[in-house]
Amino acid sequence: MASSRPARALPTALGVSFLWLCAAIAWVLWATPADEALGIVQKIFYIHVGSAFAMLLCLVAASGAAAVDLLSPSPPVDAFGRACTEVGLLFALVVLTSGPLWARKSWGAWWTWEPRLTLTLLATLLAAAVLAVRAMAGSAGGRRIGNALAVLAGPTSYLIHIAVQKWGGTHPQVIQGGGIQSPAMRVAFWACVAGLLGVAFALVALRARTLRLADCLAALQLDRQAATLRQQRAAMAGATDGQWAVS
């Protein structure tokens, strides 16, 4: 019974986070003022920034989990790392979709080689590559190879960040630059961030649990196949002994 508690709690947590996020978006749409310069397009920020936070947290956690799993292999840590990579990739896609929508209105172009955009794109490509390698390499090999690449991806992403920062950029500084002036906007912004992070954490926990269960199931199936093979071998050995006894 104890094992069924998290099974019920995790979907509930996801549902609560999702409802919170929906309420926050409704608050953004109806209760926050529109930006004077950008109009309604500015409201993309409420989703975009929170998704970027979730992406960053998930990918950093994935890299850390990969390092821990390489040092001392542990199936739950591996499942957590895989789940973080998958959810990080999902939020990266949200960031890469919402960013250009805002950029078209603000910068007049769907895409520019701006530092944060470039870093996000390369981090997304790295996460997708790690997942592709894991899928192609099978269970045991894929785990080690995927973890090694995920560990290398962490510091490399930081170097990419330094590299693209040297270009200089025009990305707005929403948090550090004091971009949110109105109190209503500030409340709605942090409510959206909380909702998106809640959804991200719940998705990671659910996905990690699903991956662990899938691994357990695969191990059980292997055990069952091994037991069947042992039975068949014993039956064949018994039949051969019988033949010898008759002859």
């Binding site: 592709a132 390698v133 192609m136 080690r144 190879i145 090694a148 590299a163």
Partner: peptide, 25 residues
């Protein structure tokens, strides 16, 4: 790492190019 992996010809550039992006830049 990819020696025993299926489709390694496709996977190698997928992994290597983003990883070595700082050198290219």
């Amino acid at each position: 790492l990819l020696t025993q992996v299926r489709l390694r010809e496709v996977l190698l550039p997928l992994v290597l190019y983003p990883l070595t992006a700082p050198l290219l830049l």
